[in-house]
Design a protein around this nucleic acid. Structure first.
Lengths: 243, 243
DNA sequence: CCAACAACGAGAGCAGTGCTCTTGCTTTGC
DNA sequence: GCAAAGCAAGAGCACTGCTCTCGTTGTTGG
């Protein structure tokens, strides 16, 4: 892995990358449904059968693209957090991470649809995707964790029926956070992606015009729901949590 | 339309229905991607080319199924509301409608994915789908409207940046409701479907175990976010909004 | 150094797809 | 009663994922 030994190995990694690049280009141009192995091979000047030496099936190629897409989205969220240090305020970091994910989705709509839309034909999420898939939610968790350690969190309400499940989730995801916060985090996660999906998949057509404003307002409400206090220290909490 | 005139018209409506039924069966069995016109024709004992007399293309068949799916989901929400009269309490009706949508989604996962997942290949949301697509959100709005008229609503906070957009949305969707409530309703709508989508599309795997409990808790939180007061009249609003 | 071996690229081919066009047949409307 | 329109069927085109075989080429152990 460290040093490329022979010409053959070098060629293999290069061709594998070229295939993925061309496939990604087709994905971006036409969507996952129209991604064709033969078209990729044609564009690369090779026989379609040769492509099967690198990816045993079309679904395997798609899975590789899925992992890359998860990583790409995760990297966008992480770099947004890196650019917004804790001194900027936890709520600002939360908004920055969420907006970065939305910007990534708008920039890569077909890749977003590939990972957060309906699962493809016969695919079942392979194990190797879960690490990449976890990067965005983990980035969001890290913001809340930082806030919990420094300023503290306003505990979200937790219904009695969810207490056991919330404790289980907390043990799995973030044992250092209160179960109520972890449950609210999972809800926040699905709310953020629900909003992005609705915008991207056309459900906001004729409904929401200023999508950016709506998203930022929603994300701010979600931050409040998770327990992130209002920004400037001292504001009690009642007045205007949305701005 | 009212009376079926000739044998030919009768046959046409019957065959059209048979095609849709068979297509729906294939959709439920294998998903939208594997729905094949030729397979439908084969199963119906007719030539594939004959099918084009009824649906000019595969996408048109899918569009018909999409409209039916929207209608089916909307009917599920509406009948849940019909079964839960206003006397049952607005929050109970809200929960009933949301749970009915979730139950419908779990019962018809491929149809749900067809309408709320990533849009199909050469997608374009035709005008004739919007009426059907509006049934579920309108059902949710009706619950909130009833609550607004009788018990009143707790006004959700509205950030300054969204005021104009919220007023625009309110004018379009529900002029009789406060803009802040309408904005919260749109967010609630995307949150509910984000949660259902995450459950259905596998993003809750290894995260949420008790999906029903999580969904009901989330829906209750959303109700609070929209402004629906706690159930038993008299409780101020601060104590336990989640239960 | 070179022979055995594994990886590789290309081509042909199979089964399947959406869709079109032409050819007859049947029902409808004047 | 007859022309016109609606209809079913078949052949065919261009495309897809995928498999198999057959030479070729790079790697590697003796």
């Amino acid at each position: 892995m460290s040093t490329i030994r022979g010409a053959r190995e070098r060629a293999r990694t290069e061709i594998t990358a070229a295939i993925k690049d061309e496939a990604r280009a087709q994905l971006a141009a036409e969507g996952a449904a129209k991604l064709s192995l033969r078209a990729v091979a044609r564009e690369l000047g090779m026989a379609s059968s040769a492509l099967y030496r690198y990816f045993p099936s079309r679904d395997d190629l798609l899975t590789a693209l899925i992992v890359d897409a998860y990583d790409s989205a995760g990297a966008a969220a992480e770099s947004a957090l890196a650019a917004a240090p804790p001194s900027a305020g936890h709520r600002a970091r939360w908004t920055a991470a969420c907006s970065a994910v939305r910007a990534w989705a708008l920039d890569h709509p077909h890749e977003y649809a590939l990972v957060y839309g309906s699962p493809v034909p016969g695919y079942s999420a392979p194990e190797d995707t879960i690490a990449a898939a976890s990067r965005v939610p983990l980035a969001l968790v890290s913001v809340v964790r930082d806030a919990h350690r420094t300023d503290g969190l306003a505990l979200p309400p937790l219904s009695a029926g969810l207490r056991a499940e919330a404790e289980r989730m907390a043990a799995d995801i973030a044992p250092d956070l209160p179960p109520a916060v972890v449950a609210a985090m999972v809800a926040a996660w699905s709310h953020v992606f629900g909003t992005i999906s609705f915008e991207l998949f056309g459900h906001f057509n004729n409904v929401v015009a200023d999508r950016k404003a709506f998203f930022e307002h929603t994300v701010s409400r979600i931050a409040h729901e998770v327990g992130l206090r209002a920004e400037s220290a001292g504001t009690p909490r009642g007045s205007s949590p949305g701005s």
